[in-house]
Nucleic acid binder design. Structure first.
Lengths: 155, 155
DNA sequence: AAGTTGGTTCTGTGAATTCCGAACTAAAAA
DNA sequence: TTTTTAGTTCGGAATTCACAGAACCAACTT
């Protein structure tokens, strides 16, 4: 692929990832900065470079980076004798993702349990149905744990 | 538990589920209507009943219900000789949930693949790292499929 | 044919969000 | 000590969004 063509496609991909991240609850600016850090060839971006590259105000970049750092999905390093911060995407391993799914499910499980406990008739169609969901989730969560250990063992 | 006490707790739970759903990208109104349909003892709600119960305008309820239906998480039934629609939460089985997780992962996988393909150096630290993520996701997705069939067999 | 029921669709608005510029700060350089 | 660098924080402007109200529509009733 021609060099300018590749660059153009990278930019488009950043925009796409940006929109995708927005759907995950990111604000537009952090969403696209994430894209930048993932897509481009440069492994580390300074604050100033992000401002330049994305044409976003310093203040927005500042809050966005703080935001992303708090979420634990980017980090920065500094080099001796250089006051700049070098930002990069954090290497989120697969079990981070699994853990997220798991945590969410456990929380949902608790909520469903609450719902059932507050039903007048615990044998009603909806209560029974919710119980079956719980069984399924339980099964799933147990399996997720097995899965994590299995994956770790493999490497 | 005393009857009014139970009702109060149900209302609180609806509000909690509402906030939870908002975090999943729902708007406030659909988020709480979902809660209503899940928590209360009444198995089916008419449009009018939802308006009454939640004190929300007809227009908002109308769009919210359409919204939820398009998402495929509620449905309505009608009864002969009755023009009203009776809404209820759809019995989303556990594999619906798994499928959602799976679909999302597959989409992410495709995006990551795009990123790698657009890298100048496919052996760079970040490209290698993305590849390892892909391996993990691949493993996970395959296992999810096994898991679904295993679960179905059990019942 | 006129009215009622059970909603839907279409703006308008208040509130929330997002972003920017300007003022500020802390550390390093001159 | 002043200036420059590398950002942060604050207040407001602009944009976006969710919701309500009103007008509307289609089917049924009287």
């Amino acid at each position: 692929m021609e060099e300018p063509e590749r660059l153009k496609k990278q930019k488009e991909l950043i925009e796409y990832i940006g929109r995708q991240n927005e759907r995950e609850g990111f604000q537009p600016v952090p969403a696209r900065i994430m894209g930048l850090l993932l897509v481009m060839d440069k492994e580390e971006y300074t604050f100033e470079e992000i401002v330049e590259e994305m044409q976003i105000s310093k203040s927005s970049v500042s809050t966005a980076l703080k935001n992303l750092e708090i979420r634990g999905i980017i980090e920065y390093v500094t080099y001796p004798g250089d006051r700049k911060r070098y930002f990069r995407a954090i290497s989120g391993e697969i079990d981070t993702f699994i853990n997220e799914v798991e945590t969410k499910m456990i929380k949902n499980l608790a909520t469903i349990n609450q719902i059932i406990e507050l039903k007048k008739d615990p044998n009603s169609r909806s209560a029974m149905f919710l119980k079956s969901i719980m069984t399924g989730m339980d099964f799933f969560i147990r399996k997720l744990d097995e899965l994590k250990t299995e994956y770790k063992k493999d490497r």
